[in-house]
Amino acid sequence: MDTSAYCQARSRLPEKLLEKLFGQVAQRLEEKVTTEYLWCGRNVKVIDGSTVSMPDTVENQKAYPQPKSQKPGCGFPIAKIGVIFSLATGAAVALVIDVLNTHDIKLARKLYQFLNPLDILLGDRAFCAYADMVSIKNLECDAVFRKHQARTTSMRKGKIVGDCDKLVTWYKPKKCPQGLSELEFAALPPTLVVREIYYYIIIPGFRTERVSLITTLLDTTTYSALEIVGLYGKRWDVELDLRHLKTTLGMDVLRCKTPSMVRKEIYVYLLAYNLLRSLMWSAGTTYGTPPLRLSLQGTRHHLNNFIPELLAATSKQRHLIYRTLLKVPNRPARSEARVRKRRPKAYPLMTKPRNELRKQLQTA
């Protein structure tokens, strides 16, 4: 079957159009969120970074080079992506694409423009920096990050406001951090008051781990320490959202052979993902089930099975079809080890380009 016509039509789709469609679907879904789905009356966004692989072509290698640790011809081009997800809907609301060696915090600074006033940004320790906390506050937003490992914890400093809860004054760095211009660094305030909440993870047989959270939510009455600790526990949801994108939908290994088509492919994946989240939201809110308890994979399978019926059905019949969406039990504080059950094939890794390997086979 000749697919050239399909490929030519696909290449004519403007990248900006796909980016706009992805953003519009996310925005319309966010507009449906009611107060009951908010955290302490605030909308929470979760930020994280990941990578995607693509075919080994000259164009892709030039735009998104493979890791420097791999020999030429033995690796694949890899792009770094930064994504902001909505904690309430699970939808991806913002995306940025860059090269592999881009630090997560550099991606984050390109994503702050997509935050709305009063949003709360939730992230891991990679995003916990002085300049970024200031930038988020300047946008009339707040942040909840895990404390960066480079910052030492002192029990004696700070104003105690509760059990394992204190207000701490941070001071502007003495040197301009990488990624900031001299003007941006000069505009930073000399001090910043943040709230530090710490707790302990105790697992029998393992060393007790202390976790410190840094937040700009200073009101201890509205935002209790227990509520904030519980909120950070939901940060794991972003890992599940990325897994849905990369594993469930198959975005982990892209198929397009040029950088522009690679970016289009990523936007189409996120567009499809958001459309599934929109369907889950519609089904859940219509039938009194929390939308995030529905299965994204089950929604996808049912949608594929019922597309012919949906096209031919009336509006009333579509509501009956929504009832078939798979529902899964709630699993709070879920944590899974990053291991693989299926064993890989016992072939050695590719350490030389294929043309050299062919020559070795011919001379052997």
Rank of each mutant, 00 (worst) to 15 (best):
F127W: 09
A108F: 05
L254I: 04
V52P: 03
T169E: 10
R343L: 00
A91Q: 01
Q362C: 15
K345E: 15
R293F: 09
V33L: 06
V46F: 02
N60H: 04
Q113H: 15
R125M: 08
V339C: 15
V25Y: 10
K20V: 12
I214A: 00
D48Q: 02
I201N: 09
E265S: 08
Y64S: 01
S69G: 14
Q24E: 12
F85T: 07
G233D: 10
L17R: 09
P290K: 05
Y322M: 15
P353Q: 06
V25H: 08
H148V: 06
L325Q: 13
R12C: 11
Y6Q: 12
Q61P: 00
D219V: 03
I160V: 13
R277N: 00
M1Q: 04
T169W: 06
S4C: 03
G158L: 09
E19Q: 14
D48Y: 03
P189L: 02
I84R: 01
F85S: 11
A94Y: 03
V253H: 05
N330E: 13
G123D: 05
G162V: 07
T89N: 05
Q24F: 08
D2P: 15
G298H: 02
Q297P: 06
K246P: 04
A88M: 04
Q317F: 03
R207T: 14
K80I: 02
K71N: 12
T3G: 12
D237F: 07
P290I: 01
Q27P: 01
P329H: 03
L292G: 02
I202W: 01
Y200R: 13
A9D: 04
C128Y: 05
T102E: 14
S295E: 03
A108R: 00
G298R: 06
P67E: 08
